[in-house]
Simulated scan of single mutants.
Amino acid sequence: MTEGEPAGTTPDLARLEASLRTLELTVRRKLDGLLQGNHVGLLPGPGSEPGESRAYQPGDDVRRMDWSVTARTTTPHVRETVADRELETWVVVDLSRSLEFGTADTDKRHLALAGLTAVAQLTAGGGNRIGAVVANGERMLRLPARGGLAHTRGLIRRVATAPVAPEGTRGDLVGALDELRRPPRRRGLVAVISDFLGEPVWERSLRALSGRHDLLAIEVVDPRELELPDVGSVVLADPETGRQREVETTPLLRREFAAAASAHRDRVADALRRCGAAHLTLRTDRDWVADIVRFAVARKHAWSGGGPHRAGRPA
């Protein structure tokens, strides 16, 4: 079977195709109007051609400081760049077992697919190319970067039908990130879609990519990962190790769980910030399309010099 070719005509495939087309249309309608200009979207590509200088504003990338103008005017300035005519985007999709979870409007795997669709829509056209590295902990799938609508739809379909790793399989986000470093890809955008559970051992690999690429991290979250409901006795399971533990959801346990979850998310946000990655959080209990639109508009405003923007997490 070639990439982008339907895997058959079974009812399950027909439902999948209908679901993916609905997802594409939903994203496209909501993002209409943001798909114009030089890659102004989730993370505008700064390009390599030098443009005009402007006064530094809080939130600007200090690596773009124009030191000659700064010295001449005694006021900090940054150098704008003109977006390249063609953008190459690579999406690292973490499909570890922990993504097979959801207690609200959708599950995290579907939310990851939605994030991939949004990135594809916001970087489409104009000779741009998109590729993907998909890792589930057991195997890794690399889809080459190509252009065109047929390729993009085929790529999303391949990710949607990627197999689920057996229970007890740990994810391999580090391996997926390192896959983009060997051999080095042309300068472009790297979007990482994951729930970022566990310690941020991926920070070194992600930081290594930041010297060559713009980075976007899309974190997918379910509310039950942030706080436990008062349901009495419950069995908690780790899908990546298979370990289970029965606990009593007492007020003390719920407070400690919420505090540990908040501390973990702070560590993830700090690590992403150190890597220079823009940070977008999508939650299974929120309107994820609205969150993407707000994030894209804020990024567009910040890059156009309209004021500072902190790519934080929605409440």
Rank of each mutant, 00 (worst) to 15 (best):
P11M: 12
L122I: 05
W90M: 07
E5K: 06
V221D: 03
G126A: 07
V40T: 04
P183Y: 02
A290C: 00
V92P: 06
A217P: 15
V231P: 00
Y56S: 07
P223D: 02
G115Y: 09
S96K: 11
R265I: 00
T9Q: 11
D222N: 06
D178P: 00
R146A: 14
P183F: 06
L13S: 09
R310E: 14
T106S: 05
V174D: 13
A271E: 03
D60P: 04
L122A: 08
R21S: 15
P46A: 07
R274C: 09
R142T: 15
R294E: 14
T9K: 03
A71Y: 05
A208F: 03
L31H: 04
E167F: 10
A258G: 04
G211N: 08
F196R: 00
A191Y: 06
V268S: 08
T70K: 06
R274H: 12
A261H: 02
A83S: 15
G154Y: 04
R245Y: 01
R21C: 05
V220D: 01
T9L: 14
G41C: 01
R97A: 13
E24M: 02
A135P: 03
D266M: 11
L180W: 04
D94V: 04
R63Q: 00
V297L: 15
G168L: 07
A165T: 02
V268H: 10
L226H: 01
L197W: 10
M65S: 11
A150R: 15
A118M: 13
I156S: 12
G305F: 11
D105E: 15
M1P: 09
S205K: 13
G175N: 05
R97C: 04
H110Y: 05
P144T: 09
P58M: 09
G115N: 03
G125N: 11
L228D: 07
D12Y: 11
A259N: 06
S262I: 02
E203A: 15
R142C: 08
T152K: 01
L149R: 13
R64V: 03
V231N: 01
